[in-house]
Amino acid sequence: MDGVELFLLGRALMKIGEDALPEPPGGTGRYAGSTRLVLIVTSDIAAHPDSAVGEIAARTGLPQSQVSVAVARLKEAGSVQTVPDPADRRRVLVRPAAGVSERVAQVRAAGVESALATALGSDDPQRLSEVAEALDVLKRHLMPAAPYRP
């Protein structure tokens, strides 16, 4: 495998992950189609708690307006909380919520089997099991030890 193949594999895995996520409540409304945006912002907040929206935008390369929309969606779902910045009361800092929201619990409980079967073009149990085991090996070796928070 070369760097390009690894990059393309990563993109394919991201697509499978997005397809495995349960649709958020009101998924056809004002936040429809922003799952990838929310995931990018969520991962940045998990890695950099107590960041201002502008800092998240700078790190992710997303426009500040899109980060604000994602933070609003995450806050509405109970996944993050915002607090005034003690250094500058005009700004707010975003951090993971202290507890697990209903939406986070729903996302964590969702399985990936259906999305994997769609991606593989097969629901063969042996093939699904083999791919799921390979993904578990990758997760064990490549994911940070800290649990996913938001």
Score class of each variant (00 low, 15 high):
20 A>N: 04
141 H>Y: 14
67 V>Y: 03
132 A>K: 01
90 R>L: 12
82 T>W: 13
24 P>M: 02
24 P>A: 06
128 L>C: 04
1 M>E: 13
104 V>R: 13
22 P>D: 05
83 V>I: 15
24 P>V: 05
97 A>W: 03
97 A>Y: 05
110 A>E: 01
8 L>Y: 11
39 L>G: 07
92 V>Y: 06
59 R>Q: 11
68 S>Q: 15
129 S>M: 04
100 V>K: 11
44 D>T: 10
69 V>E: 12
59 R>K: 15
122 S>Q: 03
28 T>P: 00
36 R>L: 14
30 R>N: 12
20 A>G: 07
2 D>M: 14
140 R>K: 13
93 L>M: 13
103 R>F: 09
121 G>Q: 12
150 P>Y: 04
121 G>H: 08
38 V>R: 04
22 P>H: 08
118 T>R: 12
130 E>V: 10
58 A>F: 08
89 R>A: 11
70 A>G: 00
61 G>D: 08
45 I>M: 03
108 R>C: 03
27 G>I: 06
140 R>A: 13
21 L>Q: 12
87 A>E: 14
114 S>Q: 13
101 S>M: 11
117 A>L: 01
29 G>Q: 00
8 L>S: 08
147 P>G: 07
60 T>E: 14
5 E>W: 09
93 L>K: 05
101 S>Y: 10
44 D>K: 03
105 A>D: 09
32 A>K: 08
149 R>T: 11
142 L>E: 09
93 L>P: 02
5 E>T: 13
56 I>M: 06
88 D>M: 07
92 V>W: 03
22 P>M: 13
135 L>T: 00
81 Q>Y: 06
29 G>Y: 06
48 H>W: 08
26 G>H: 09
137 V>Q: 00
86 P>R: 05
90 R>Y: 12
13 L>R: 04
61 G>T: 14
94 V>E: 00
42 T>E: 03
17 G>I: 03
54 G>N: 06
86 P>I: 06
67 V>A: 02
126 Q>Y: 06
28 T>Q: 14
28 T>Y: 14
8 L>M: 15
46 A>M: 11
